Simulated scan of single mutants.
Amino acid sequence: MLEPYNLPFAIAFALMLAMLVIQMLGFLDFDLDIDSDADGGIGAGPVDGLLTLLGLGRIPLTVWLVLFLLVFGSAGLGIQALAHELTGGPLDVWLAALLAGGGTLPVTAALARPVGKIIPQDETTAVSTDTLVGRRAVITDGVARSGSPARARVTDRHGHPHHVMVEPHEAGSQFYAGDEILLVRREDNTFFATGMAERRLSPIGS
């Protein structure tokens, strides 16, 4: 693996291991926010469509990169081993890297779907908090009043749940556990929402 003709693939494995360690330590936690439907349809723009086809809308970006590096490194070593068997020597390092890279993209995209299904779905993804504005949520704990937020559950465009603190957008409004709301704006760590239906009557004595 440390031969010069295998250098790109050795670097790929080293980067993969480094990303795994960094991810486990919690220092690298970001995602690429791509809007794709549940059937993996192409987004509105050509760039979004291309990225979705590559599997970037199915799994976090860090996981996709680890998969890509793993497949690229394995494919490159396999190509060079096959070249040794057939010709008695390795291919030019850049030719081998080009061949490996061309095959890695579709393989990584194909692996993204099953990998996305086994990644725990109750983990919070690192999509931008602002993307939750405009989405429906449900109050889970407490009563939301002006100046007194309550906990609510909202799912992002990938179907992953997030728990946020919510206050009513309209002064005097209140939301109770189970109420469905619409997040309309955010200030710091607090979201403001409007009700999706008529608020149920407050319990007597509350």
Rank of each mutant, 00 (worst) to 15 (best):
M1L: 14
E3D: 14
N6P: 05
N6D: 12
L7M: 12
P8C: 07
F9H: 01
A10F: 15
I11T: 05
A12P: 01
F13D: 03
A14F: 13
M16A: 11
M19W: 09
L20E: 03
L20R: 03
V21W: 01
I22A: 15
Q23R: 09
G26S: 08
L28C: 10
D29A: 14
F30R: 07
D33M: 08
I34Q: 01
I34L: 15
S36T: 14
G40A: 01
I42N: 08
G43A: 15
A44I: 11
G45N: 13
D48H: 09
G49W: 00
L50G: 06
G55D: 03
L56V: 02
L56M: 15
G57Y: 00
G57S: 09
R58A: 12
I59R: 00
L61D: 03
W64Q: 00
L65E: 02
L65S: 02
L65I: 14
V66Y: 07
F68L: 10
L69H: 04
G73N: 00
I79L: 12
Q80D: 06
A81S: 12
A83G: 04
E85K: 10
G89S: 15
L91T: 00
L98K: 05
L98S: 12
L99D: 07
A100F: 02
G103T: 04
T104V: 03
L105I: 04
V107G: 03
A110E: 08
L111K: 05
A112D: 09
A112C: 11
V115S: 10
G116H: 03
I118G: 07
I119Q: 13
Q121M: 11
A126T: 14
S128H: 14
T131N: 10
R135F: 03
T140N: 06
G142E: 03
G142W: 00
R145V: 10
R145N: 09
S146E: 10
G147I: 03
S148A: 14
A150N: 01
A150R: 00
V154A: 04
R157G: 10
H158D: 06
H158Y: 11
H158P: 05
G159P: 00
P161W: 07
M165Y: 12
A171Q: 13
F175P: 02
Y176D: 08
A177N: 04
A177T: 15
G178Q: 01
R186P: 02
E187T: 15
E187G: 12
T190Q: 07
F192E: 15
F192L: 13
A193Y: 06
G195D: 09
M196E: 15
A197I: 08
E198P: 11
E198L: 13
S202R: 13
I204F: 10
I204H: 12
I204V: 15
G205P: 08
